[in-house]
Design a protein around this nucleic acid. Structure first.
Length: 447
RNA sequence: GCGAUAGUAGCUCAGUUGGUUAGAGCACCGGCUUGUGGUGCCGGGGGUCGCGGGUUCGAAUCCCGUCUAUCGCCCCA
């Protein structure tokens, strides 16, 4: 039955109106935070993605060989393209770079709730600033985006974590360097896996120490206050100026900024968030519905070495950013009754009695359209009753009636389709009259 | 890629232990209606019952396969 490819969507006008409405909100909020919109190609060299993520990623890409023999792929994410844009002009771009992007992405994966093969993603990145103030700005933007879509902190929370804190934890426990990335992976999964499986995985990596390690991990994950984090980090410290002490200071700066920016209510400290990706280097976060079940609304974090890696070392800039997907966002809004029905009706619906009246109505439609009104009229000859019915169903704000009487008197009858009230106006001053009526908030019913 | 459940009109669904020409509401189109709609009345179009095969005198109904969707696993940039 399905006419589109699996994981792809058709957007009928009502659907697209809703999508555009949401996108307009996202764009507007991003601009308020002084982020600039950019774009990049949808189709990129396959290598761009293999370099970042390895060969295995190819099975999850839409990729093919083009007629020129080039291996190409539809973009599954934006970061590699962004890194190229930034690296190419790293010298001349004013720092910090605050850019955002809203576009379609493609991943060849099993479609599920909240995850399709084609989806739109809002990306925001802040490049060239390594301090936690940049992370705070991004998180504040994320919270604002969700709030302006109608959500609030009782519906969603941004779970905040830090990979450096985890590294210091591993360091403190004297875990060999080569096992750290695997352990972070196990820790990342531990929140959505049953404890037995986690214990088993830990025991494999650290024979004999699995249980003790798991207890220590759970203890760290249970911390949900700045004081708790600070205390724990100082327990890793050897001196007042080592990395653990500096990280405690970073946490303090970040949390204080988030407080000042007014979004602390939407933040939960939760070290259970690690994010699977190896390239994250600092604070990481994911936005979730508090109701629990659904997948992350958004996710992001700091990736200080990625631009260097993707640019082949030609430029090295600290960076941080997040992505917000349209599928989970729309699901969340719908579940909370916040998906608006967008009215796509015209401003004016013209109703004409006969041939002569129609000529005048069409002439007016031309004037009105040039003046900026969305104008429509029935394409076929129809009776008044029928035309009024159509006018009502069209969603138009006003009907303009061109009948025999109006034509003879050089007038047009304006009908407010919401209130049902009518007013005859001089044909020559129609636009002025319409403006006055709109100014007054419509035509009132005579009492 | 692996398991589980489902699939009947554009949408939501009904369809008796297998039995004539598969129905309803909403939506859509037309008429009543060349001067008043969204909210009246009458009528109409629209289905290879997801697709393919099998069992049977006969299949929307039972069996197998397949596709798609949903849920769980893997993954989640």
């Amino acid at each position: 039955m399905s006419e589109h490819l699996p994981g792809f969507r058709d957007f009928y006008p009502d659907d697209l109106a809703r999508r555009n409405h949401l996108f307009a909100i996202l764009r507007e909020v991003a601009v308020r935070f002084d982020f600039r919109e950019f774009d990049a190609p949808v189709l990129e060299p396959l290598d761009l993605y293999l370099e970042k993520s390895g060969e295995e990623i190819a099975t999850q890409l839409f990729h093919f060989t083009d007629q020129g023999g080039r291996e190409v792929a539809l973009r599954p994410e934006l970061t590699p393209s962004l890194a190229r844009l930034v690296a190419d002009k790293a010298e001349s771009l004013k720092k910090p770079i605050k850019w955002f992007h809203l576009g379609e992405h493609f991943r060849y994966e099993r479609p599920q709730k909240g995850r399709l093969r084609s989806f739109f993603q809002f990306n925001a990145d802040l490049i060239g600033e390594a301090s936690p103030s940049a992370d705070a700005e991004l998180i504040a933007l994320l919270v604002s985006l969700l709030e302006e879509c109608g959500l609030h902190s009782e519906i969603f929370q941004v779970r905040l974590s830090d990979r450096i804190t985890w590294s210091l934890f591993l360091e403190d426990r004297k875990v060999p360097q080569e096992k750290r990335s695997d352990l972070l992976d196990v820790i990342d999964k531990s929140s959505r896996r049953d404890p037995e499986a986690t214990l088993e995985a830990l025991e494999t990596l650290l024979p004999g120490e699995g249980k003790a390690f798991l207890d220590a991990v759970d203890e760290l994950k249970s911390i949900d206050t700045l004081e708790g984090i600070t205390e724990r980090l100082h327990s890793f410290s050897q001196s007042e100026e080592d990395e653990a002490a500096r990280r405690a200071e970073d946490w303090k700066v970040l949390i204080n900024r988030l407080e000042s920016l007014g979004c602390i209510d939407a933040i939960t400290i939760d070290l259970g968030i690690v994010r699977g990706l190896a390239y994250y280097t600092g604070f990481v976060y994911e936005a979730f519905e508090t109701s629990g079940e659904s997948r992350a609304l958004a996710g992001g974090g700091r990736y200080d070495h990625l631009i260097s890696k993707l640019s082949g070392g030609s430029s090295d800039l600290p960076a941080s950013g997040f992505a917000l997907g349209d599928v989970t966002l729309a699901d969340c809004l719908e579940a909370n009754g916040l998906l608006p029905e967008i009215d796509v009706g015209p401003d004016l619906y013209l109703i004409a009695g006969g041939q002569d009246e129609r000529v005048v109505a069409l002439q007016d439609s031309s004037r009105l359209r040039k003046a900026g009104y969305a104008v429509t009229y029935p394409l076929r000859e129809q009776g008044f009753g029928k035309q009024f019915r159509e006018a009502g169903k069209s969603g138009a704000v006003f009907a303009l009636v061109y009948g025999e009487e109006e034509l003879a008197a050089g007038k047009v009858k304006v009908k407010d389709l919401t209130s049902g009230a009518e007013k005859s106006v001089e044909s020559g001053s129609l636009i002025e009259e319409l403006l006055a009526i709109e100014e007054a908030g419509g035509l009132a019913v005579e009492s």
